[in-house]
Design a protein around this nucleic acid. Structure first.
Lengths: 137, 137
DNA sequence: TCCTTTGTATTACCCATAATAATACAAACA
DNA sequence: TGTTTGTATTATTATGGGTAATACAAAGGA
């Protein structure tokens, strides 16, 4: 998968990397169990320091998206825990987003249409919870 | 309207103030044309520096939510421009949010239910675009 | 007219975080 | 025995958030 950095962004580089990998997993561009580039390889590829890549991997590891194994490198989790609730932070973020949309005059249906668009890009129900068992390599 | 600061938050204080005021406008807790506290009054009320409040007001002003008038203080905009599109940043944020929800196993319907909940808290269609003309003072 | 209140501008300082840089090390595989 | 892996360490730089202490022009009230 290709990581593309937005240079003028206020989002830190390590978080941009983390975000793009999470979207990649959700949309099947990164398969369960797939090997990610080494910290040094990815750092050189996108022209940044390897410790910044490591910081992104540390975050992904802590959040349960990937598994790091010394010598074996970094791999995408095989299965993900089903947690049928958004985090309080995410809920507040969504609340905020709806409020701003509402002031701009964006209707509920317009907002939901956008949500549907993004859900259509992601993998089908249960794909990452283990009901599908994709063959790898 | 009461501003409540989350002390352990990673969200900067000036942005917490800005966010709560935006939500307040969307949900009718702040009426169009309503006067906001002075920078010094709000600063003392929540125990922070007045320049931090000013920073929040500057942002709200630049985003078109409020109007500052020397000597007259700060007031909520009367009418808001109808812009039937989320900003690219907001879209990307929503995309990110859907991706993370998807990995957690949260379905489209569960996500939309949350959106509906927040839309139910906000004012009806067109309220802030001037079709309603609320009486003030 | 004089005083007060308003948002605003300025300057300085402290602190946390992001990012780079240069290494170093234990583990594990070929 | 290399070499590659993630990881830890230390130092340095830059940016942004927040506080602090003022200062000022504008505008309203007394």
């Amino acid at each position: 998968m290709v990581i593309i950095l937005q240079d003028g962004s206020d989002v830190p580089v390590f978080k941009q990397i983390r975000n793009q990998i999470v979207v990649g997993i959700s949309e099947g561009k990164l398969l369960p169990g797939e090997k990610l580039p080494t910290v040094r390889a990815l750092a050189e590829e996108i022209g940044i320091n390897s410790m910044t890549v490591n910081k992104a991997y540390q975050l992904l590891k802590q959040e349960g998206y990937i598994i790091t194994d010394k010598r074996n490198g970094v791999r995408v989790r095989e299965k993900f825990a089903s947690i049928p609730e958004l985090s309080p932070e995410a809920k507040e973020q969504l609340h905020q987003m709806v409020s701003e949309a509402r002031i701009r005059g964006i209707t509920r249906d317009e907002f939901v249409a956008l949500v549907d668009e993004y859900y259509a890009s992601s993998m089908p129900d249960g794909y990452l919870q283990g009901e599908y068992t994709p063959l790898l390599e």
